[in-house]
Every structure is written in C-alpha cells, then in structure tokens.
C-alpha cells in the first residue's frame, strides 16, 4: 500500500491583489517521482514554498508526512531535502565548510555520499562557493541535500541553467535516490525530456490553476493530434472548434491540424462526420503534448503568424 507524502487542500496564495496559486488540491504518493510542471509564473515555486512552511498560504492547507506545513516539527523538516531555485548557498563558505554547516544541523550525515557527489562534480573541499560554476554549485547543493539522506526530496527547478553534463549527473542522482524504496522525489522542471526519463507522475499548472495531475503515460495518451484533409479549400472550422476537449487547431493549406484532449469514441465518431476527406492520427511525444496542452488555446498557435501577416 502506498501512503500519501504530500497533500494539499485548496491551497491558495495571493501576493497583494495578484493571485499566485488558486485552489491547488493534489496528492503525492510515497515512493514516486513527481514532476511539477507549468510555465514561468504559474505558481510552482509559490506552491513549493508553502509546502515547506516558508510562506503562509492565503487560504487552504498543505501537509507533509501528515504534518501541517505551517508547523512542521524539526524532525520532519530533517527528513525533507529541499533545493531552492537557483541553488543558493552561502557564498563565503568553502565546500567543506558547507558540509560542516549542514552536518552540524542535521541528525543524519552520509559523509561518503557527500564526498562522492562533490568528486563527481569536480568540486574540491577547499573551493569557495562564490568561485564555483553554476553546475558545480548545483552539485554542491545536491551533495549537501543527499548527504542528509532525506525521505522526501523537493527540488525546485534543479536543472535550471545547467549544462547537459551536469543535468545528466543530476538525473543519475535522482535515480540513485529512488534506490531507497520509500524515498519520494517532488521536482519542478521545464525540461520535458528529464521529466519523461524520471517522472512517474506529473502535475501541470496553468495560469495558477492545476490542470492535470496524472501518470506521465496518461498525460501523453490523453492528448492527441489529428490532421484532417479537405478537398475543398474553404474549410468550415466552426464545427470542429466546438468539439469537447479541443485545445487548438491550425490551418495549413487544405489541412486542419487539431489537438484534442480527453478525446473518446464519441469525438472520433464526430470527426468522421465533419466533411474531411481523410483523417490522420499523429503520435505525440511528451514535449509536443505539453506544448500543445499549455500553448495558446484557439485557432492559431504560433505567435509568429501575426508577424507574418503584417509583412
């Protein structure tokens, strides 16, 4: 039986009069790798900060390991490894001092693991944080976090600004962590290829609202792209646009490229009767599905179209 590690209930945050997160309710089961996706400013970081009690929710609540986020006991906080966005750490510290600081404040400290990760990222114990490259700093933060042997790893955009090599090392570490069966990883990212590799489940935020929370495969399966070919060029798109689950459709010559979500047999049946001469199903990768899902809704998708039209 899998139990729930993170649970949020109608979690909402306003900054002044601006809404940053609206009514987020979701669950993260134990032992899973959970990708938290969404465009910039969609409220991912805000949600994570509220989860950890770093920010007061405007309303709603969140629990981690069954404890209210606002009153996490020390030992529970000790079980959560958190890497904030941008991998900040004390710039004046040397790597070994950072380790000393971390080990002095956490009950668990896996020194071998710490040194192994540092070595993997090519960081010497006497390197100062301010002299480290971005990737190295991320590596240091990762080493500091992993060495405390957390049961829950919360990573806020860990791959941000990392080169492919560092990113790969990062993914390897995440896979390594799942070796411990009960360890859960909750991470936000923009990199769909990473998500595809490591995530079991994803949640997608769009304009501060949770739009999807499901398995990676489910997400991919539910989004479909269909190309309708017409004989006669003036296409009556109104009938197509009114279909349920229509994300957007693009005119290309005598073709209509439709992106549909949650399409079922009924929709397929309806598509057969819109007057298209042929119907082609286009398989979608996760990244394309994601783009289609969060792209502009409606009849056009590329904002360059406007540029093209005016020239």
């Amino acid at each position: 039986m899998t139990d729930t590690v993170i649970q949020t209930d109608r979690l909402t945050k306003y900054f002044g009069s601006k809404c940053a997160l609206l009514e987020l309710s979701m669950q993260v089961p134990r032992g899973c790798v959970f990708g938290f996706l969404g465009r910039n400013g969609s409220g991912k970081t805000t949600a994570i900060r509220m989860l950890l009690g770093l920010l007061d929710p405007t309303r709603g609540s969140a629990t981690i390991f069954g404890h209210d986020s606002q009153q996490l006991p020390d030992n529970v906080r000790g079980k959560i490894g958190y890497m904030p966005e941008g991998h900040p750490f004390y710039r004046w510290m040397k790597a070994k001092e950072a380790g000393r600081f971390q080990s002095g404040t956490y009950p668990k400290w896996n020194k071998d693991l710490f040194e192994a990760v540092l070595e993997h990222f090519g960081i010497g114990p006497d390197d100062k944080v301010k002299n480290l490259s971005r990737g190295m700093r991320a590596g240091l933060c990762l080493a500091l976090t992993l060495a405390t042997e957390p049961e829950l790893l919360i990573l806020d955009d860990p791959a941000l600004g990392l080169d492919p090599v560092a990113r790969h090392a990062f993914l390897e570490s995440m896979i390594y962590v799942t070796r411990e069966k009960r360890c859960t990883i909750f991470f936000s990212s923009h990199l769909l290829s990473d998500v595809e590799r490591v995530a079991d489940r994803i949640a997608v935020l769009d304009h501060n609202v949770l739009k999807a929370c499901c398995c990676v495969e489910t997400f991919r399966k539910q989004i479909r792209q269909v190309i309708l070919r017409y004989e006669d060029v003036p296409i009556d798109s109104a009938r197509v646009m009114s279909m349920p689950g229509m994300l957007h459709c693009v005119h290309i010559g005598n073709e209509l490229k439709l992106t549909l979500v949650n399409a079922n047999g009924e929709v397929d049946e309806a598509l057969n009767h819109v007057g298209a001469s042929s119907i082609e199903q286009v398989p979608l990768g996760l990244e394309e599905a994601f783009l289609a899902y969060l792209g502009d809704k409606g009849e056009r998708t590329s904002f360059f179209d406007k540029v093209g039209a005016s020239q």
Partner: peptide, 22 residues
Amino acid sequence: SFPTPPTDGTEIFDQAGDSQEL
C-alpha cells in the same frame, strides 16, 4: 466558501484506481 476554479473539459486527472499504477 470559494468556488473551485472553472473547468473546461481539458483537465487530465487519473481515475482513482490509476494512481496506484506503480
């Protein structure tokens, strides 16, 4: 209480059983 955000049929949520798909 506050209303839940409006849905437009494009939401993707696992069915209850799917969440145990590990």
